[in-house]
């Protein structure tokens, strides 16, 4: 094939396309197309802005935390059992700092548990029993009484302040996670990874804020403000 040949082919193809060539094949009205494109781009921008809170929050976790700040997240009524096998329903009575755990978690959870323990000590120092800590298991099938108890001892959880519990019904537990936007992913090594954080939950089960473990002191302060406002 010579260059002349291929040129001719290009020329022929362009004529078919009608791309407004020198020696123009046909004039076509661009306006409707441009208008349609503009509409499309506008629709895209509105959709993307809606999704990302006006191009501010790009991840699900950031959106979830904003939803919590605005009081749009609820922990549904969930029946729990603690290390003493006492049953109770979450979302009643006390402002709580809630985190989600599984007792067999090794490395990372060690740090997080220690930070939750520090929150417990801060509450104890502040006195007043209207704020409590609650760790809810995401692995209720394996986290039986004994394991919940071992977890509580490992992090020196004082039962007066800190309850370690698991959902009585796995389906209720899953529903609670879904409602809160907590997503648990198997890490491929027999453990789990999840968007773990401290959830400040008021007496009606409404989430009022979500904080990183490292920021436990803000979570404690927020919970204390809620409890005081209630009094």
């Amino acid at each position: 094939m010579t260059e002349g040949d291929s040129l001719e082919r290009v020329e022929r193809r362009r004529r078919v396309d009608g791309c407004g060539l020198p020696g123009g094949v046909k004039e076509v009205a661009l306006v409707p197309t441009l208008a349609a494109c503009a509409l499309l781009v506008a629709g895209f921008l509105v959709g993307a802005a809606n999704l990302t809170d006006g191009f501010e929050r790009w991840t699900f976790e950031a959106l979830r935390r904003e939803a919590a700040r605005e009081g749009r997240l609820h922990l549904p009524a969930t029946m729990l059992r603690d290390a003493a096998d006492q049953r109770f329903e979450v979302g009643t009575g006390r402002v709580r700092l809630v985190d989600f755990i599984y007792t067999q978690c090794a490395s990372v959870c060690q740090v997080l548990g220690v930070e939750f323990h520090q929150a417990q000590e801060a509450l104890r120092r502040a006195g007043g029993a209207d704020v409590g800590l609650l760790s809810i298991s995401i692995d209720p099938d394996r986290d039986d009484r004994a394991r919940l108890g071992a977890y509580a001892r490992r992090f020196r959880a004082d039962a007066a302040w800190w309850t370690v519990a698991a959902p009585v019904f796995a389906s209720e537990g899953r529903r609670a996670l879904r409602e809160l936007g907590v997503v648990v992913v198997a890490d491929g090594l027999g453990g789990f990874v999840h968007n773990g954080a401290i959830h400040v939950i008021d007496v009606d089960g409404r989430v009022r804020g979500i904080y990183d473990y490292a920021d436990w002191s803000s979570a404690v302060a927020a919970a204390q403000r809620l409890a005081t406002a209630r009094r």
Partner: peptide, 21 residues
């Protein structure tokens, strides 16, 4: 015209699904 709409639509779809959320 000139395939502009299709190309614009595809660009929007590409961009949207790059957003982690």
């Amino acid at each position: 015209v000139q395939g502009l709409f299709g190309a614009t639509a595809a660009s929007c779809v590409f961009a949207f699904w790059m957003i982690p959320a």
